[in-house]
Design a binder for these strands. Sequence first.
DNA 1: GGACCCGCATTGTTCAACAATCGTTGCCAC
DNA 2: GTGGCAACGATTGTTGAACAATGCGGGTCC
Lengths: 211, 211
Amino acid sequence: MSDTSLAGDLRRRIIAGEFAPGERLSEAALAARLDVSRNTLREAFRALAQHGLVEHVPNRGVSVASPTTADVVDIYRARRQIECGVLRDASPLHPGVAAMRQEVERAEAAVEQGDWATVGTANMAFHRALVSLSDSPRLERAHEQLSAELRLAFLAIADFESLHRPFVTRNRAVLDALVDEGPEAAAAELERYLTESERRILGAYARLGRA
Amino acid sequence: MSDTSLAGDLRRRIIAGEFAPGERLSEAALAARLDVSRNTLREAFRALAQHGLVEHVPNRGVSVASPTTADVVDIYRARRQIECGVLRDASPLHPGVAAMRQEVERAEAAVEQGDWATVGTANMAFHRALVSLSDSPRLERAHEQLSAELRLAFLAIADFESLHRPFVTRNRAVLDALVDEGPEAAAAELERYLTESERRILGAYARLGRA
DNA sequence: GGACCCGCATTGTTCAACAATCGTTGCCAC
DNA sequence: GTGGCAACGATTGTTGAACAATGCGGGTCC
């Protein structure tokens, strides 16, 4: 997915929460830890910075991105635009619908076992599959970037259960609406989903006393 | 706009057509020409690659991107999704509308003087201003990437007059529709614009016998 | 307490070298 | 002539060390 395996590796580590959002990433220290040269690491940083996963301030190094409330609001505005738009133009017969169903079922199974991390990744995979209905690599790429940033917000909040559990049934509702009632109804359902999800994150941010 | 000034510099050079689309960019040669180190240049390459401006194939270096017909189709699909969606939600009272009008007038003035390069940049600036109506940095960023790639398609075709002249009046029509008839009518007008523009590029590609 | 200055740590950039990989060229057998 | 095969050359990938440039914090002086 990423050019250098190093960038992909770092990306995975960040998304996995190995580095806290906002944490400063020292070139020398990280290069030593990953056993790569500083120059190679800097190349990877440039790639990640364009993804919005790390923030790069000239002469002050890079930190793991830490979305502010303004960022969250913007991410959801963009998500609404992309996901709802895609869904409105989507066909219920698109092969990607099977992938959506698969992720919903994976999430439902994970809920049974209280595995909230898996619930979260399945939820996000559901929306990735949703965007894949557009058959547009560029829309998928844009959405992928939004998801990565959003994941950092989830990490900052850490309460996976309250962030992800309520949305399994909502994802199921979107899927059912698409199959049974058509794209327009599904888009409306999705819009409700996104509004609710955004509200919940902002609420958690407020409780954390966060910018 | 870009982190390192070098990446921005390269970006400007590529967009200005200093390097032909598809041209291979040798690290050693370009580093010498720009009077920077190979390492620094490689960092800039990584940033540009994520923008879609250059293509990076491991062990085979980077080339200036050269959109295929499939790319053009995808770019327009994404543009339609983003631009039309933004316009539908836009208010005619948004300050960005003034910027749109300014660009339309700049394009109209350039048409008078036969300055097709300026017509082209004004047309693209019009659409950037249009997306700015969303007040969403992330949507603007995504759109900016699409524009940069599209510009490479324009460069490959080179016939600026036939690519840009017909669309000045269409941009004007979109603006007028937004102000006089509201967002929905403007979005419909914009959709016609995009369809026509896409058709014209694909036609030119076909005449060039291009992939 | 506030402004100024200096030193320290980190980033930015360069250079030279070597390993890894790709494409090509020339050779040989068939 | 054609098809594979091996060595070569060129380019990219990565490293390590060095030095310049910048930002930050501590200390001093008023």
